[in-house]
């Protein structure tokens, strides 16, 4: 298996950067807030260390809510969106002000719905642009809440996945939405099986762009 060369890493970072830029423009229009972006960080890590590296990047003392969504298509993988636990009310307020997000639900369910909704919108917008830049399209599975207001240490990976050498591509970016400062981390995980496809697409992108 060929490696994540500096060039590919740069290309991936740039593609994420551009696609998140477009995604935030749609989000900004939909939610009427400014979405501040940070430089994405791309890394190749062993799958067995996913939790550890999430712990390092988020910190184990912070209570967070994690929305997970799988995508399929030419590449498969999953996206985790980690939002600080206390952001629930801000999320509801922001969606409500944005454009009539007001399902009749009890308070705790409403908070979960707001998290799912933000997760789905952010993930869908970012991955949609990402796929478009690579000339493909993706399908998405039902998003799920993996963790509710708890430390990332409580997130347990599937122990049946014993292939400790398998690699994952971890892309991290943080964002901040609006004056209410709803911030979060977005992690995209590609399983090793899809590296070939991804690298092929990246090389094609590099060839066209440089």
């Amino acid at each position: 298996m060929e490696a994540l060369t500096e060039l590919r890493q740069g290309a991936l970072q740039e593609i994420i950067n551009i696609s998140f830029g477009r995604a935030s423009a749609s989000l900004a229009e939909l939610l009427k807030v400014y979405v501040a972006l940070n430089v994405p960080n791309v890394q190749e890590i062993p799958q067995s260390q996913i939790i550890e590296s999430l712990e390092q990047r988020i910190g184990i003392d912070t209570d967070i809510t994690v929305v997970q969504q799988s995508f399929t298509g030419d590449f498969e993988g999953e996206v985790l969106l980690a939002i600080p636990a206390n952001a629930g009310l801000r999320a509801i307020k922001m969606l409500g002000q944005g454009r009539g997000f007001a399902p009749a639900l009890p308070a705790t369910d409403l908070e979960m719905e707001a998290f799912l909704e933000i997760g789905n919108i952010v993930i869908g917008a970012c991955m949609g642009q990402f796929a478009e830049l690579l000339n493909t399209s993706l399908s998405y599975e039902v998003p799920d809440i993996l963790l509710t207001k708890s430390s990332i240490t409580n997130l347990r990976r599937d122990e049946s996945n014993k292939d400790v050498k398998a690699l994952a591509l971890l892309i991290k970016t943080d964002f901040q939405m609006g004056d209410e400062a709803l911030s979060g981390f977005l992690f995209i995980l590609f399983g090793q099986r899809w590296f070939d496809m991804l690298y092929l697409a990246l090389d094609k992108f590099i060839e066209e762009m440089t």
């Binding site: 740039e14 551009i18 830029g21 900004a28 972006l37 762009m209």
Partner: peptide, 25 residues
């Protein structure tokens, strides 16, 4: 020259004296 193509970003840089905003790619 940026990937941040939000209206608010453009307003901010014009206020700071930028001549133009070019979208990436």
């Amino acid at each position: 020259v940026t990937a941040d193509i939000q209206q608010k970003a453009a307003e901010r840089v014009f206020a700071l004296g930028a001549l133009e905003v070019v979208k990436k790619p």
